[in-house]
Computed example of a mutant assay.
Amino acid sequence: MGDIGLWIAGLTGATAVLASWVTSRGHTRAARLQAEISAAAQDEARRREVRRASYLAFLEQAHLMGVEYRQTPSILRTEDLELRRTRIEEHRARLREAFGPFRHTGQVATVHARSGEVVEACDRVFTACRTVYMALGDISDGVTESAVFYTSLAHYWTAVDDFGKAVRLEEA
């Protein structure tokens, strides 16, 4: 009977060790899975925040370009053609300076975009911005009338609004 008791004690001990090992593996797997899920959720939240920040930065720069565009009508009303041409060229130089950060934030926004619609909307904003700039050059050269600026500017603001709509649809 003593041998059976030793055998039962050994079996019980081995069962306890095996049960402990299985339990610890289960806890380890559960902890690893929970850590992976948590890391993935944090990574997605970080990506979402970076994307939103890039979109906001682009919209801010688009509105800063708009601030520059708001100075244009007073320049276009200048009666003296030579003075007007000089003022337009100075204005275009300021627009070129403002375009650098505008372009940079647009590129960052397209890198972080989840949808092609946002990328296309961003490209339309750049195209409209270029059209406004070129219209000012044509007005300065006397090739076209001032009304072209206002038409181009309306297209620019429509493109900016379309970008905002594309972002809202992407975030929905």
Rank of each mutant, 00 (worst) to 15 (best):
I88E: 00
R77E: 13
F126H: 07
T78I: 13
W21T: 12
A109Q: 03
A39N: 06
R46V: 12
A172N: 15
V108E: 03
K165V: 14
S54W: 01
L6I: 14
S38M: 12
G142M: 04
A41Q: 12
D80H: 05
S152R: 02
R124C: 06
G106I: 06
T105Y: 10
F126R: 07
Q71E: 10
Q61P: 05
F126C: 02
G13S: 03
R85K: 12
I37N: 08
V50L: 12
G66P: 01
V167S: 03
G66I: 02
L56E: 11
A45P: 05
L18W: 04
E44K: 07
S38C: 09
F163G: 01
T151H: 12
A98R: 07
I139Y: 01
R77K: 14
R70V: 03
Q107V: 09
A16V: 06
A147V: 14
A172E: 15
L76D: 03
I139Q: 00
V143S: 12
H27L: 13
E36R: 11
A166R: 00
W157C: 01
S140I: 00
R168C: 08
Y156H: 11
S115Y: 04
V17Y: 07
I88C: 00
V119I: 05
L64R: 05
V118I: 08
E145D: 15
L83M: 15
R32F: 11
G100K: 13
L169F: 11
A57D: 14
F163W: 05
R84K: 10
S24E: 09
E60H: 14
S152A: 11
D3M: 14
I75E: 00
P73S: 09
T86M: 11
R87T: 04
I4Y: 10
A9T: 13
A45G: 08
T110D: 05
G2H: 05
G106L: 05
V111D: 08
Q61F: 08
A39V: 06
R96C: 10
L18R: 04
H104S: 15
R51G: 05
F102R: 02
L56N: 11
E49I: 09
A40S: 11
A109C: 09
Q42M: 10
C122T: 10
A19R: 06
S146E: 12
S140L: 01
H104C: 14
A128D: 02
S54M: 02
T12P: 03
E170R: 03
R46K: 14
D80A: 10
Q42A: 14
R85D: 04
A35R: 12
V167C: 06
V67F: 10
G137Y: 02
I75N: 00
A9Y: 08
E49W: 13
E49Q: 15
A31C: 06
A172T: 15
H155P: 03
L153G: 02
Y55E: 00
R103F: 13
V160L: 11
L64T: 02
F58K: 00
G26P: 01
G116I: 09
Y69R: 01
G164L: 02
D80Q: 06
T72W: 05
R94C: 08
M134P: 05
S74R: 14
V167Y: 01
Q34S: 09
S146G: 15
S140Q: 01
T86I: 09
D80I: 04
E90K: 06
